[in-house]
Nucleic acid binder design. Structure first.
Length: 585
RNA sequence: GGGGGCGUAGUUCAGCCGGUUAGAACGCUGGCCUGUCAAGCCAGAGGUCGCGGGUUCGAGCCCCGUCGUCCCCGCCA
């Protein structure tokens, strides 16, 4: 080993020690006589002084040092002279008086400053990711990610979980996201798929009697990207046998407590609150409520039913809802602001937005003539409106009301700065519907996935009123972000077949696509359930960044391209020929 | 597939109503400088204004197209 210490670890106590350091030239301050270098390695910065009085030749060599040169420096650690201590640096009380210098690697001037704090375009950062990753902020994130992963492993290991790797080359499945396909050279014309998740394998591991499985698993989905969605991402995936939902919930709560404490020193209060899907939709208009602030949706249907306002009355007559939210202190909103909010609302399918401004002297609203004064004040009262508040209403079919007001709630809370920054609100959302109806395809689809068990008491409704069937499915939500979801699975073959039938997957197709699972369920499957947590999202929240790209070492752009490697890229004719693949572009 | 933002020096940006030679800061190069740490001072280099077309006497600026990038909708069991 060339080095004796890391740059960042030197302290006053090292004074007098002869050390050899290796690292990158972070910054050079050349005074002609004296030359100062900030030398950087992964542990931090240390000031190195090149003084001709110490070694003339070494001082002369240091003249040619440039940013990001990789060097080896030997010298003596010395307490800094009076008045030259740098309190901004952990190593600021000492410096290294260099007596020998070797340039291990010269470096081109980097395309952006590794040292600089200035925001650099992401495309450039990703192309030169190795430079970007040198920056202390990203080094910190990668290490925190590592600590979080190790914390999770330690926690699950201690509770008897076995980490099992499942195949990356697996079978394409019809449900869910688009698969990444991999051709098979030895089997012309057929394809593997990269896993969207290890779902089926972990269930089969339960049939295999593993009892408790986990994996920090890479997953692949060929869908369009977002700030929180990459084509390959990492899940904390686990499954347990002989458990109920509560077992999973309490286990996950303990695990989150451990991870947040060990990775970031954050205390998570448990047990986490639980809320049914129905309640979440009613109160927050979304299945992943951000509970860090109020502004909940208020149902004013009963109060406006009798009033003369046609828009409201019609929505109710057609089985819809009239709900509103109260935007505190926004009574001063201008015509333009209200128009903008209306446009925002229309973006989610609402036909419009009704509003009331609450003032000390009364209520200001364009729909005033439709309400008697006492009706209007009953509405204000029901919504907790105070003088200076703005009430916003949407009347429509229930899903549109929920979506519009839910989005409006988040939009306004952001604008009004109502969301506390340093707060971690966990929430279990439970009792999801088992099925949704796909209008386009005219069939039912699984809301979670086709292997999710129904609530026992709802099973009889599977054929008669499928949309009323609740699932033993749950999501864990943190600050309005879904960070994980899971369910108790179907462990009986007859029920699994019934589910496929309900989903319009015929016996033939079920056998072709999932025959191995159905067969496994015939050989003694334990009741089981599990969960998968989005590890990237979790880390992003832990370090406080918006995009999961910032917590992935080598992420892809929105077009799913890797600017560093230029993947995906063309392949040779010979490669394609060997795979029996012809292009049709 | 759709909506929106951005694209000017190595980087981050400014660039007025379309008008002469496109600027700033940082970085870079050279020089001076023995206590700096965002070192300082002096000098200098550096531009296909993403690309293509159009309008115009004249385009970084206006129009059309296109590419890249970011945000969002759709999509993501």
């Amino acid at each position: 080993m060339r080095r004796t210490h890391y740059c960042g670890e030197l302290r006053r106590g090292h004074a007098g020690a002869r050390v050899t350091l290796c690292g990158w030239v972070h910054r050079r301050r050349d005074h002609g006589g004296l030359i100062f270098i900030d030398l950087r390695d992964r542990e931090g910065l240390i000031q190195v002084v090149f003084n001709p009085a110490v070694d003339t030749q070494t001082h002369a060599l240091a003249h040619d040092l440039r940013s990001e040169y990789v060097i080896e420096v030997s010298g003596t650690v010395a307490a800094r002279p009076e008045g030259t201590v740098n309190p901004n640096l952990p190593t600021g009380e000492v410096e290294v008086a260099a007596s020998a210098l070797t340039v291990l690697s010269e470096a081109e001037t980097p395309p952006f400053e590794v040292e600089g704090e200035a925001e650099v375009g992401e495309a450039l950062r990703l192309k030169y990711r190795y430079l970007d990753l040198r920056r202390p902020s990203l080094q910190r994130i990668l290490r925190l990610r590592h600590v979080a992963a190790q914390s999770i492993r330690g926690f699950l290991n201690a509770r008897g979980f076995i980490e099992v790797e499942t195949p990356m080359l697996t079978k394409s499945t019809p449900e869910g996201a688009r698969d990444y396909l991999v051709p098979s050279r030895v089997n012309p014309g057929v394809f593997y798929a990269l896993p969207q998740s290890p779902q089926l394998f972990k269930q089969i591991l339960m049939v295999a009697g593993i009892d408790r499985y986990y994996q920090i698993a890479r997953c692949f989905r060929d869908e369009d990207l977002r700030a929180d969605r990459q084509p390959e991402f990492t899940q904390i995936d686990l499954e347990m046998s002989f458990v109920d939902r509560e077992d999973i919930w309490s286990l996950m709560e303990e695990m989150l407590v451990a991870v947040f404490r060990e990775a970031s020193g954050i205390t998570v209060a448990t047990p986490c609150p639980r809320m049914s899907y129905a309640e979440a939709m009613a109160r927050f208009g979304t299945d992943k409520p951000d509970t860090r602030f109020g502004m909940e949706l208020a149902d004013v249907g009963p109060l406006v039913r009798g009033a003369g306002f046609k828009v409201f009355a019609q929505a109710l007559e057609q089985g819809g809802e009239v709900k509103g939210i109260c935007a505190p202190g926004m009574a001063g909103a201008s015509r333009k602001e209200l128009d903008d909010l209306t446009e925002f609302a229309k973006g989610f399918g609402a036909k419009g937005l009704a509003w009331m401004k609450v003032a000390a002297e009364g209520i200001d609203t364009p729909i005033t003539k439709f309400f008697k004064p006492e009706e209007a004040s009953a509405i204000v009262h029901a919504m907790g409106g105070k003088s200076g508040d703005l009430l916003l209403f949407v009347a429509d079919k229930s899903p549109i009301v929920a979506e519009t007001l839910g989005r409006l709630r988040l939009h306004l809370a952001g604008k009004l700065r109502l969301i506390p920054e340093v707060r971690y609100d966990f929430l279990w959302v439970t009792d999801f519907p088992l099925l949704e109806y796909d209008e386009a395809e005219k069939r039912y689809t699984a809301m979670h996935h086709p292997f999710t068990a129904a609530m026992d008491e709802d099973i009889p409704l599977l054929e008669s009123s499928p949309l009323k069937v609740r699932a033993k499915a749950y999501d864990i939500v943190l600050n309005g972000t879904e960070i994980g979801g899971g369910s108790i699975r179907i462990h009986r073959q007859d029920l699994q077949e019934r589910m496929f039938e309900r989903l319009g997957i015929g016996p033939e197709e079920a056998k072709a696509k999932f025959g191995f699972l159905l067969e496994a369920l015939q050989y003694g499957a334990p009741p089981h359930g599990g969960i998968a947590l989005g590890f990237d999202r979790l880390v992003a929240i832990l370090v406080g960044v918006e995009s999961i790209r910032d917590v992935i070492a080598f992420p892809k752009t929105q077009k799913a391209v890797c600017p560093l490697t230029d993947a995906p890229s063309p392949v040779t004719r010979d490669q394609l020929k060997e795979l029996h693949i012809k292009m049709d572009l």
